[in-house]
Computed example of a mutant assay.
Amino acid sequence: MAQTKVLVADDDPNVREIISLYFSKQQIDLVVAGDGKQAIELMEKEAPDMVILDVMMPQMDGFEACREIRKKWDTPIIMLTAKDEEFDRVLGLELGADDYVTKPFSPRELVARIRAILRRMQPKAKAVEDVANPLTFDQLTIDLDKREVVAAGEKVSFRPKEFDLLVQMAKSPGSVFSREQLLELVWGFDYFGDVRTIDVHIKKIRQRLDKLPYECIHTVWGIGYKFGVDA
């Protein structure tokens, strides 16, 4: 079985050394970069399975590197931040990061998060469900097999978890889901992040469907969200 290849971009040599020593024992191939600019160059050359970006780096910081990576690749990204502040966490998620780890961190926890994200990306056996395919709602069509969304006659690109989240709600129109329920249903029990992840992904879904003449995802204040089309 091929080893997992992880690109780590951090300007602190001590952090890179700690990660390198631990990864070598975990059957993880490590590719290192000293800044975001070098990380982008290595994305082209190495095609890693996972990217870990420190927020504070010279040349190009982690946020900018995340933004640039998302323009071309859908590779999972974990952000490393020395600040345990909500702004950093939410900004990273909005730019396309899949998770974040606050410094100082345990290498064991970092590896656990890497493996959890990669497990969630593996194809899952289809459950036997009495659900129509495609799901059609007036000017919105969701093809479950092709993982395609057509809104107002135009095909719209979704990142994997955005699509999964949309489908989870669209399969039960009118049902109210709490953030915790959606995390469990879409991300699974091994997710380490917080419920704000749901809010960020909902915001992205709404932006992608902004050509529709109606709102599809409705906020249920104090509880969570529900899917509903009122054309």
Rank of each mutant, 00 (worst) to 15 (best):
K103S: 01
D29R: 13
K45E: 15
E64C: 01
G224E: 06
E68H: 09
R67W: 03
D164E: 15
K37S: 11
A151M: 12
E129R: 11
P13K: 01
K72A: 00
H201M: 03
D98R: 03
I217V: 04
K211S: 12
W73C: 00
K203V: 06
A116C: 04
D61G: 05
I114H: 02
Q122E: 15
E148S: 00
T102S: 03
D84G: 00
I142V: 15
A33N: 01
A65L: 01
K5S: 09
D210V: 06
G222K: 15
E17N: 06
S178A: 13
E109H: 12
E162S: 02
I117W: 08
F163M: 13
A33H: 00
A151W: 14
E68Y: 12
G96L: 10
D49E: 13
P13Q: 10
L209K: 06
L185G: 08
S178F: 14
M60G: 06
L42T: 01
G193K: 04
V195D: 05
K71E: 14
G36N: 02
F105R: 12
E85K: 14
D143E: 14
D35P: 04
R208E: 13
L140C: 07
D145Y: 11
D230T: 07
T4D: 05
E46D: 12
I202C: 03
D10V: 05
E86K: 12
S178W: 11
K103E: 05
F105S: 03
K204D: 00
Q181A: 10
L30A: 07
R119F: 08
W73R: 02
A112G: 15
S178H: 10
G153N: 13
D199K: 03
